[in-house]
C-alpha cells in the first residue's frame, strides 16, 4: 500500500514535468501547423528576403524582410541603451554600492522589471511621442528611436539583475588579490571582476535580446507600423510581433494572410529559440 503511494506520487511529479515538454511541443506544433501552409503560396526564400508586405493585395506579397529589419533595428537600439545602463547598474550595485544602497537599489530594479509592458506603451504613445515632435521637430514621434528607448529601459532590469548575479559569484579572493597587487578599485573591476563574470554577463545580454525582440505591446503602440526598410533613425517600422498582434485580429481565419502571420511567428520563435540555446550552451559550459 505504502509502496503504491510512493510510486503514484512519484509518477505524478513525472507527469507534471512531462507537461512542460508537452506544452512546449504544443506551442511549436500549433504555430508550425498554422504557419507552414503559407509556403504553398510563397517560397521560404522569398518570404524571408522580399521587403514587400502586402498580404491582402491581388496578387498578395508575403515578404517579411522589412518586418525582420524592423524587429532587429529596434532591438539593436534597445540593447545600445540597455547594455551600458544595465551593466553599469549591475557593476555599481555589486562592486561600489554600500550595503544600504545595495539593499535599496536591488529591489528597486526588481520592481522595474515588474512594470507591465502596456504601461510602457502608454507612456511612449501618449507622452514620449508628442514630446519628441515638440523637441526634435521630427516628422513623426512613433519611430525606431522612441521604440528603442522604451524597449531599452524595459530590458535594463533583466540585464542588470542577471549580470549582478554573475558578478556576485566572482570569488572575493580574486578581488583581494588584485587590490593587494596595487590595482585600484576601477582597474580591479575592469581587468579582473568583469572578465571573470563575462559568460554570465553575455548570457544576460542574450536574454535581454530575446526579451526585446519578442516584446509586443511596446512595438505595437510606439514603433509606427510602417512595413518598410527604414532609411533613418526617426522612421516608423513594423516589427514582427506588432504585425502579428495588429493583423491577427482582423484577418480571416484560414486565409493565406492568416497563415503568413503564423509564418512570422515561426521566424520569431526560431530567433528566440536560438538565443535560448546560446544561453543554455554558455551556462552548461560554465558548469563544467
Amino acid at each position: 500500500m505504502n509502496k503504491f503511494k510512493e510510486t503514484s506520487f512519484k509518477s505524478v511529479t513525472y507527469l507534471a514535468s512531462l507537461f512542460t515538454i508537452v506544452f512546449l511541443f504544443a506551442i511549436i506544433l500549433s504555430i508550425f501547423y498554422e504557419g507552414i501552409p503559407i509556403f504553398k503560396h510563397v517560397s521560404l526564400i522569398k518570404f524571408l528576403t522580399s521587403p514587400s508586405w502586402h498580404p491582402t493585395h491581388f496578387p498578395p506579397d508575403f515578404g517579411i524582410l522589412s518586418l525582420i529589419a524592423g524587429s532587429f533595428l529596434v532591438t539593436l537600439g534597445a540593447l545600445i541603451i540597455s547594455i551600458p545602463l544595465g551593466l553599469g547598474s549591475a557593476i555599481y550595485i555589486s562592486e561600489l554600492a554600500g550595503p544600504t544602497s545595495k539593499e535599496i537599489l536591488k529591489p528597486v530594479i526588481e520592481l522595474l522589471a515588474s512594470i507591465p509592458s502596456v504601461v510602457y506603451g502608454l507612456f511612449g504613445m501618449a507622452f514620449l511621442s508628442p514630446l519628441l515632435i515638440k523637441i526634435f521637430h521630427v516628422p513623426t514621434g512613433l519611430n525606431i528611436f522612441s521604440a528603442s528607448i522604451i524597449l531599452g529601459i524595459m530590458v535594463v532590469p533583466i540585464i542588470s539583475s542577471m549580470s549582478e548575479d554573475a558578478l556576485s559569484t566572482v570569488p572575493k579572493s580574486l578581488r583581494e588579490a588584485s587590490l593587494a597587487l596595487g590595482a585600484n578599485k576601477w582597474e580591479t573591476i575592469i581587468r579582473v571582476v568583469v572578465p571573470a563574470a563575462k559568460s554570465g554577463i553575455f548570457s544576460s545580454i542574450i536574454l535581454g535580446f530575446g526579451r526585446a525582440i519578442g516584446e509586443t505591446m511596446v512595438v505595437l503602440m510606439v514603433a509606427g507600423g510602417a512595413a518598410q526598410i527604414p532609411k533613418g533613425l526617426f522612421q516608423p517600422v513594423r516589427p514582427m510581433p506588432a504585425a502579428i498582434a495588429a493583423e491577427m485580429g482582423e484577418t480571416v481565419i484560414g486565409s493565406p494572410h492568416f497563415h503568413a502571420l503564423y509564418g512570422i511567428s515561426i521566424i520569431l520563435f526560431t530567433v528566440t529559440f536560438i538565443s535560448i540555446l546560446i544561453t543554455e550552451f554558455i551556462v552548461h559550459r560554465r558548469k563544467k
Binding site: T20, I27, L207, G214, T216, I244, A245, F273, T279
Partner: peptide, 17 residues
Amino acid sequence: VAINTLAGVPSIIYGLF
C-alpha cells in the same frame, strides 16, 4: 530546456498558441 524555452517564448506567440 523546455522550461527555459517556455520562459523565453514571446508573449504574442502564447497568444497565437
